[in-house]
Nucleic acid binder design. Sequence first.
RNA 1: GCCCCCUUGGCGGAACUGGUAGACGCAAGGGACUUAAAAUCCCUCGGCCUCGGCCGUGCCGGUUCGAGUCCGGCAGGGGGCACCA
Length: 873
Amino acid sequence: MTTERYNPREAEPKWQNAWAEAKLFETGDDDPRPKYYVLEMFPYPSGRIHIGHTRNYTMGDVVARHKRALGYNVLHPMGWDAFGMPAENAAMQNRVHPGEWTYANIATMREQLKLMGLSIDWSREFATCDVDYYHQQQSLFLDFYEKDLVYRKQSKVNWDPVDMTVLANEQVIDGRGWRSGAPVEQRDLTQWFFRITRFNQDLLESLDELDGWPEKVRTMQRNWIGRSHGLQLRWALDADTAPAGETELEVYTTRPDTIFGASFMAIAADHPLAIKAAQSNPEIAAFCDECKRAGTSLAALETAEKKGIDTGIRVIHPFDSGWTLPVYVANFVLMDYGTGAIFGCPSGDQRDLDFANKYDLPVVPVVMPADADVASFQITEEAYIEDGVMINSRFLDGMTPKQAFDAVASKLETETLDGRPKAERRVQFRLRDWGISRQRYWGCPIPMIHCQDCGVVPVARADLPVKLPENIDFEKPGNPLDRHSSWKHVDCPSCGRPARRETDTMDTFVDSSWYFARFTAPRAADPTVPEAANAWLPVDQYIGGIEHAILHLLYSRFFTRAMREAGHLDLKEPFKGLFTQGMVVHETYRTGNGANAEWHAPSEIRFEERGGRRCAIVAATGEEAEIGSLEKMSKSKKNTIGPEDITQSYGADTARWFMLSDSPPDRDVEWSDRGAEGAHRFVQRVWRIASSVTGKVAAGDTSSAKGDALALRKAVHKALKAVGDDFTRLAFNRAIARVHELVNEMAPLVDKTKDGSPTDRAATHEALSILMQMIAPVMPHLAEECWQALGYDQMIAATPWPTFNADLVVDNSVTLPVQINGKRRGEIVVSKDAERDAVEAIVLETDFVRHHLDGASPKKIIVVPNRIVNIVA
RNA sequence: GCCCCCUUGGCGGAACUGGUAGACGCAAGGGACUUAAAAUCCCUCGGCCUCGGCCGUGCCGGUUCGAGUCCGGCAGGGGGCACCA
């Protein structure tokens, strides 16, 4: 019988239409089956989908299809994280409206995504830039405002003094604006904040219960929230050196035990003391200005060279009125943290030590390892931060740092300075409130109005949504909303007099902090329908990139709590299970260097061997391109492969299978054409086997199967058990390896059984049916085609997951490796769960054990049942 | 700089809670079929050698009857650092 090759170009659209017509993936709210909500982080509509995006949607799709087959009512929606800077950049470069650009991208990307055959409920789709969505978001903002979860305060932004615009951190390159090249300055603006710190203790504690999250993400969040125990400590200023009106300097420290190792104080450039010192000293003023040019990102600050300047101000040591220490302004101290001031103990902190060495400040070791010698213990280049014993610390000597902490705290709590205790124990969090103001057009407008008489007034609910104006221009830098006079000028909702709108829009992280809740009632007139949200949430399995481990996930956890306070839902944690997937990477091809560098798409490259070296040649010009490292697929480096590249040749199933093969899902996968070919060979192999039995086999009684038919059944049921477990654990690569193994084992058996007895043929039919069900979550189109070839009328996408036969998956005997002194020397076959004594007796009789023991009797025999035997000779 | 993670053949990786290192796939080599090619099928495939062994999971050390897995240190690579999404 000749078989046609499987043709995905025909089969894939056919089955996609069939699923859509049957509305198989549209999810109802009133369904008696248990719910399962699977969600992949929604994409930013950057232009075109590439295969890298589709890997995590494929993972989610496998979960969705598997859970659906297991009998769950599955919610698997898709949307667009559609506000953000790239749309404004496009507007500036191509004079296209950000909205037009965004919706055009969405249309393209939706069609590309649909090629992949994902089982998504498209009826729930929305984009965060839809007026309806940001209308609801404005309403949430007002709710939070009423609950005192929103407030305004001064905060720093990166300011480009040439373009007169606020810059994002990524727009600051080496301290300069990306367009103007001008040195960036820090500017204070009054901005809107969400009071995430109200929940800091709860956000921290609840991490313990999120056992469906990777431990590393929980650890990262714990560190980010950063709860610490310390001392708020007040140092008296030396009156002769203090600026007028200043009498003390307050610091927060987690290491009060090192107080006798203190050799200087360091304050932020915008600390009140620094500002006063700068007023009378131009050098200090110049240094403070320099600090303000450093940009606002923490990474930039901390990698910069540590610098400071002596203010001339002196503080008095709390335990010794004759001991004064200098106060420096330092570029590594931030006003946002603690009190904006620290005391430096060089021997116990590397940064303080570097600073002390640079400015010739004393270094007194105060903690040393318990076994070190006081007389000779010195700190020169490397600070000692470990536990140990206190030295050079007067009444603390001999204590542990922990005891010293308590001793210092207890003592200073009872002493006073200007009538107040010198110190107070305090629990501090590193987490800061979330600044959401953005001086940009393409975001959700903040629904507030500024009135000269009434102050800040919320927009009336009835006046929502505050829509973005359409007629805007991007000819000038800065925020078009701020220049748009007819939009900006409104009457005050309170007094009716002329007022102006808030022209800042919200951080796009706000948009993505509640979209998962909106999917549960995407067309509701309120942000949520609480019954629907409570029924569907939490998301059972959330899948996305590790780069979102902290901010997006923490903000979403905050939003869920805040929405609960506002009555929109009733839960704390939005994501029950979290999986962080790796990226799809590809080589890059570049000609030219520096400013002349040009990147080439893989489709423009052909490969040649030159002197045993693999060379990439630009097909059009014959020029050799430099092969770059494996990088995340990106538009700018052109190392992308689009879904249509693959669906036009191998089909979506091949791409899906390939992307989940080999690499574990939480690691990066390299796209390779060879790998895709390999996956396609497997597609054809499955089709060949399925079509070879068409018309020959049918369902029937398999209970009396023997020989090849029994071997077939055993192999299939064992694989079914393993693959089901692997899908549940999201170990897709293992599941695929198991299926490969199974097909290798099945192929020769099927060849014989398909023409055998009725029982043989029934077993063949059963085996192939189960195989198709196992591959269906990953290769849904191929599975439907084969399912039909096996004679089924109902689609496989609507067929329940098979159950394995427990009798077929257990073996009666087991092969035990035998080690002598930890080295494998042979193996024995014993019955399953054989007695320890019996195993020992068998082992000692084997030739290889006798040979290695050479007459001696073993010291010890370790038998791990059904696992291993180790003889200690 | 700080926090988190990763490192196993030519390559991607497997080895579940410490128990046969290299499953499965890719690449490569050999063979069968074919006028030929494609496709398919079969075999080999970590290193070294005296073919019985020895070495081997980034590097150094430790715990253990037994370590890829646990602990300490080091090196290299990646992610995050609050206005990229």
